[in-house]
Design a binder for these strands. Structure first.
Lengths: 213, 213
DNA sequence: CACCTACTATGTCGGTTGTCATAGAACGTC
DNA sequence: GACGTTCTATGACAACCGACATAGTAGGTG
């Protein structure tokens, strides 16, 4: 947790440079209230950053800030996915999914239901239009998906199937996050993990060499 | 489609009363751009309603309007779910899920990716705080879930399991909608339907009386 | 010292937001 | 025709938004 190399490591207040703090703060505020409700001034204040620095570091305005926040979130998620192979002694697709969901159970249990997923929040507000944030959004989702695919392929799941399962896993997670926040309970997260487990386990075994028992 | 009793029937412009039109317009605008980006004035204009009527019909202000829009969406979704039993000759859980997803494939294919789900859009923007829209949000989701549970139970799925599957189905759908809008493709919808099909089919068969074949 | 660049500070602009106050029209009923 | 209710019209308010202009400071290099 204190390990700065850990994928969960986040820039604590006043550490890191103002620019990085603003991107991080933007992601935090966006996932709590959405993009439109997150003002540039709010971000600056939350990051304890000089207001004049915003237009200096982000000449592209709010769109640039939001885009970088969303890509930061995507990279963070991808790094967390990749961290599974270090912690698991017997890697499996269903174990991977549980690993991916775990931080959300912790988040809701310890910090409440204020904050959701930055990617979903941004998509809900902006994906319907033609915002400049759209390309970053696509990249963030693609990198997250790619990380999951990499893990699954490493377990012997065929690439095509791995892509489908990645879409399913992330989709179910996002929906369960919404559900959890609306009802203020973590049960939906447990449900999707439990229900998808057999399906994922089977996909993992299919990739294994035939067991001679 | 022209049948006013059909669950897809929607108030066409200038039909129905101004109040109802505003609720409907609010839902349409919200699911395209989110709650915060949807102004009361936008709704009034989109509904071709008199601006003065807004404060007359919605003394509770924007929160009331958004709340009713979200509940309207929940009822609409629930009605669509319930319509499955009329159209299916051999009802099954996987068939139900395909039926639930179908309108979204049509929506994206014919009208583009501008509009997403009103429930998800509202949840993303408001579920983290303590908005007055939260209770309506919960009701909308509960009614949607309830409709799915009713169908599954009618197929012989045990109630507890039906609740879990309903959460899984709606969660996966919501995530796939986001994914589709971000990448401007309907593939994610097909993927979740295809991947969940075996799991749902098995749940349906488990509820059947033992087959003497 | 001058000089350039990186960064910060602050004020202001036009536009939009939700809400409210006030007045007027439409329409029924007595 | 008078009255009461329902609905509509319009203007104004304070608060806020993102973007920009301008000026200043800090720190290094020559």
């Amino acid at each position: 947790m204190a390990d700065p190399q850990s994928p969960t490591a986040q820039p604590s207040t006043a550490q890191r440079r103002p620019r990085e703090r603003m991107v991080y703060s933007a992601a935090q505020l966006i996932r709590a209230r959405g993009v439109t409700a997150t003002g540039v001034r709010d971000v600056v204040e939350h990051a304890s950053a000089p207001r004049g620095s915003f237009q200096h570091y982000f000449p592209g305005g709010k769109d640039q800030l939001v885009g970088e926040a969303v890509e930061w979130a995507g990279d963070f998620a991808a790094r967390w996915v990749a961290s599974y192979r270090e912690t698991a002694d017997a890697p499996s697709p269903d174990g991977l999914f549980a690993h991916v969901v775990q931080p959300w159970k912790d988040e809701f249990a310890s910090r409440g239901y204020e904050r959701g997923c930055p990617v979903m929040a941004t998509a809900a507000d902006l994906a319907g239009g033609e915002s400049a944030v759209n390309p970053p959004l696509r990249r963030a989702l693609a990198r997250w998906e790619g990380a999951v695919v990499d893990e699954l392929v490493g377990m012997g799941v065929p690439a095509d199937r791995a892509r489908s399962l990645a879409v399913l896993m992330i989709s179910a997670l996002e929906g369960a996050i919404m559900w959890s926040r609306v009802n203020r309970e973590t049960a939906p997260l447990d449900i999707v993990v439990a229900e998808l487990a057999p399906l994922l386990r089977a996909a993992g075994r299919a990739g294994d060499p035939p067991r001679p028992d």
